[in-house]
């Protein structure tokens, strides 16, 4: 770059500060700061007031007293319901992520190996449902899964079953709902990875007489590990806190932590306990989030 270009860049210095400051302040105020507020309120005591909690710090008789109430966390640990809900959420998210991978990998693979002129069309077919309403796509499954729904009607018409199967309001319905709605999040990083696959390795393996399956297992699969980790975490992390899918497709005993938080807030109006639930959920998810960041950084380089 010439000297004049550099001078232009230097003149832009104040402009640069503005470009950085606007998103930094906005996201800091409305995305980062709220987490501190949640942490603060998770340490306060429930009160019948508006807002329904007591302040942490109080100024009385010339003394500042700060009361940190860990009772909400102790309550989460002692009441078996919350621990069970965390474990159940992790289990449901993990099983759904596995299903998503088992369907998503072949789809990403077939798209990556398709003729270049067809790839964009197939990719668009994957992304298009994602653009239409998430809520309505979950709703569509109610019509499929209920006792007089499409699946049961088909099974009974074919004579495969006499009485309708209980599909809706089960954990299976939740697995299907999560797998269905999060499938594009699995396919896109896998596709990005597989389309960059070094074809010369595949050819070398084939030239050396390796069977296609051997080549796939020893060359393709290990090389796509980064895409697999990224895709799995993009599905797993939001699935752990999912509310809509267990609320619409799950049964009363489908205990997911997102639903517990929702009820704690909207039904019990216990903001401090809802905050503690959120903080613990965040702590549980830190590991997967770091894993995702590492996988994404590796994929980009």
């Amino acid at each position: 770059m010439s000297a004049r270009g550099l001078a232009g860049l230097r003149r832009a210095w104040s402009g640069r500060a503005l470009v950085v400051a606007v998103p930094l302040l906005w996201l800091g105020l409305f995305f980062a700061l709220p987490f501190l507020v949640v942490a603060k309120i998770s340490l306060s005591e429930l009160a019948i007031a508006m807002p329904p909690y007591l302040p942490l710090a109080e100024w009385a008789d010339g003394a500042l007293s700060i009361v940190l109430n860990f009772g909400n966390y102790l309550f989460l640990l002692s009441d078996g319901l919350y621990v069970a809900a965390y474990l159940e959420s992790l289990k449901i998210a993990a099983i759904s992520t596995l299903f998503t991978l088992l369907i998503g990998y072949p789809m990403a693979y077939v798209i990556a190996m398709a003729r270049p002129d067809r790839r964009n069309l197939l990719l668009m077919l994957v992304v298009l449902p994602f653009w239409t309403s998430f809520l309505l796509r979950v709703y569509a499954w109610i019509g499929f899964l209920k006792s007089n729904g499409i699946i049961n009607n088909a099974l009974m018409a074919l004579g495969l079953t006499d009485a309708p199967l209980q599909l809706i309001q089960t954990d299976i319905a939740v697995y299907i709902g999560i797998t269905y709605t999060y499938l594009p999040f699995m396919i896109l990083p896998l596709y990005a990875n597989l389309s960059r696959l070094d074809r010369s390795h595949l050819e070398a393996a084939a030239d050396l007489g390796a069977r296609p399956l051997t080549t796939f297992l020893t060359v393709t699969l290990p090389q796509s590990a980064g895409g697999i980790v990224a895709g799995c975490m993009l599905v797993f992390i939001p699935a752990v806190g999912e509310f809509v899918i267990p609320a619409l497709l799950g049964g009363p005993d489908t205990l997911m932590i997102g639903r517990v938080l929702w009820d704690e807030f909207f039904s019990n109006r216990d903001w401090p306990v809802a905050s503690a639930v959120a903080v613990v959920m965040l702590l549980v998810l830190i590991g997967p989030i770091l894993l995702l960041r590492r996988a994404q950084a590796r994929e980009e380089s």
């Binding site: 987490f35 949640v38 975490m233 992390i237 806190g241 989030i289």
Partner: peptide, 30 residues
């Protein structure tokens, strides 16, 4: 602030919605 900005741009993509919703509401109330 590059590191902070990078994290704050990528975290909302995976953050469970119940956490984002609750934390923003508590911010507005405070």
């Amino acid at each position: 602030g590059r590191m902070a900005l990078g994290v704050m741009v990528s975290a909302p993509l995976v953050m469970p919605e119940v956490i984002v919703g609750l934390s923003l509401l508590l911010l507005f109330v405070s």
